[in-house]
């Protein structure tokens, strides 16, 4: 059962191995804090949609399953949007249009269709947590590379007297701006995908 959780982290990482959800992955990964916020939103929606799709798998008619999944997913996304705007307005402002776009994040519909509608609630919860954390992990790694090189900072949550921004000496004054742009996102994504594929190959050969 535990492998339902761990598979999403590296072996079937949704971004680097299955290559799903690239739009938000590349769009918000300019800063580490945005990646963490997006990741938290996706984990919540994925968890909610997987639980409900799994619970309702015998109730939802086969012919209208996709509209039914979209209603469930869109409801959770709208809840995330309203709760985030009310209680985390700074994060809501910084994620902008990417919060409502979680509805069309293919990882969520993909997991409903490929996993939750065939498996138990318990397995679907573990799958959602694994895939959600795998997505968050991928976003944070991409953002870490892009933010360190592209802006010369690492932006985390502000806590007490710490304003949340770690400045990297040397890079803060002359950052490599291309990393912050769309071209840099694709470059970093490509290199990291190669790295993950290489790790996966080594693992497979060892087995």
């Amino acid at each position: 059962m535990l492998k339902e959780f761990t598979k999403g982290l590296i072996k079937e990482n949704p971004v680097f191995i299955i290559v799903l959800g690239l739009c938000p992955a590349l769009g918000v990964s300019t800063k580490v804090i945005n990646s963490l916020g997006m990741g938290a939103g996706v984990i919540f929606v994925l968890l909610g949609s997987n639980i409900f799709v799994s619970l309702l798998k015998n109730f939802i008619p086969e012919k209208v399953r996709i509209p039914a999944y979209i209603v469930i997913i869109a409801s959770f996304v709208t809840i995330v949007e309203m709760v985030m705007e009310a209680f985390l307005p700074a994060l809501y402002d910084s994620l902008g249009v990417f919060v409502p776009l979680i509805v069309v994040n293919c990882i969520i519909l993909g997991r409903a269709e490929a996993f939750a509608n065939k498996n138990t609630v318990k397995a679907s919860i573990l799958d959602a947590l694994g895939m959600g954390l795998g997505f968050t992990l991928a976003l944070v790694i991409i953002a870490l590379v892009r933010e360190v090189f592209g802006l010369g900072t690492i932006t985390l949550f502000p806590m007490g007297s710490f304003n949340g921004v770690i400045e990297i000496p040397g890079l803060i004054d002359s950052p490599v701006r291309v990393f912050g742009l769309a071209a840099g996102a694709l470059l970093v994504m490509g290199l990291l995908k190669a790295l993950f594929t290489w790790i996966e190959d080594i693992r497979r050969v060892k087995q």
Binding site: F59, I60, P67, T78, I79, M82
Partner: peptide, 28 residues
């Protein structure tokens, strides 16, 4: 039957969203 089931899912979703909206709207 199919339409009724889909309508039921939509109705439950709408109620859930209405409740969350009632809580968050004044704060927003």
């Amino acid at each position: 039957k199919i339409g009724g089931k889909l309508a039921a899912i939509c109705a439950i979703a709408a109620i859930a969203l209405g409740v969350v909206n009632a809580i968050t709207e004044p704060i927003i």
